[in-house]
Amino acid sequence: MASQGSFKYVAGRLAKIPQAVLALTLIGLICLVAIASALQLPLSPYAYDQTSTLYLAGPSAQHWMGTDELGRDLCARVIYGAQLSIAIGLTTAGVAFVIGTVYGAIAGYCGGKIDTLMMRGVDLAYSLPDLLVMILIGVLIGRGTFGILLALGLVSWMGTARLTRAQFLQLKNEEFVEAARAQGQDHLSIIWKHLFPNALGPIIVALTFTVPSAILSESTLSFIGLGLSPPACSWGTLASDGWRSLRAHPHLIFFPSLFIFATVLSFNFLGDGLRDALDPRTRLSKLK
């Protein structure tokens, strides 16, 4: 049982789940593309902000995904967009995970007055208008990519906190926790060894949602005019720039959406796989 949390153990179990392997491969590929484009390797014959006189051309042999209203190759932009989309998704999930689980774990484990007080704190953080917080962070840190990453992270930890706390409240009365307490284990090891691994399932699933929802939030930010600074672009900004062309130039919205879809799907399968791998009670052989 002691080794169940170890990386090797989880990875070994994960490798037995085909969907998860597939998802991981896909995510790995997208991340590779993102890293390569960050290193400015020429993945496409066109630079991402290179314009041509071919305005709004549909997909063709030259331009696989067509061109946009400034005559830029959409494929090059989607490749470039991978970098920011992945960064946005992972950072936001990371910030939400760290702040959210720690906060929620404390509230859920302590319970009583501390819990009540901390949950009112979550209410407070929830009630502050996201938009104001984001504009403010934009002003304080600058409207660069980093500002948006931080802003999205800072407005999305509350869900994770509430979820963690609910899990802890439910779990801390289970027999195995009572048993551990009876054995005289200290609070930290109870939280770390018993509560946390058992609460992790739904939290990870929720996190596999934070990644896509951050990617989407960023596209909504672009929709209301608070997105990234061009020519920087992400799949979200590409989708929000192209959605009015749904009828006239569907390729502008189709390709970015396709990549968002593939990424989200992969993260879902990965989340599922992780949950199974983390849970020692799952018999992997029984899964298809």
């Binding site: 749904l246 959406s257 989200v264």
Partner: peptide, 20 residues
């Protein structure tokens, strides 16, 4: 698959699609 579609497509795109 359906639920992935639901969360990976922005609301404005779904709206535009429905209207269309």
């Amino acid at each position: 698959f359906l639920s992935t579609f639901g969360i990976s497509v922005p609301g404005f795109v779904i709206g535009a699609l429905f209207i269309y």
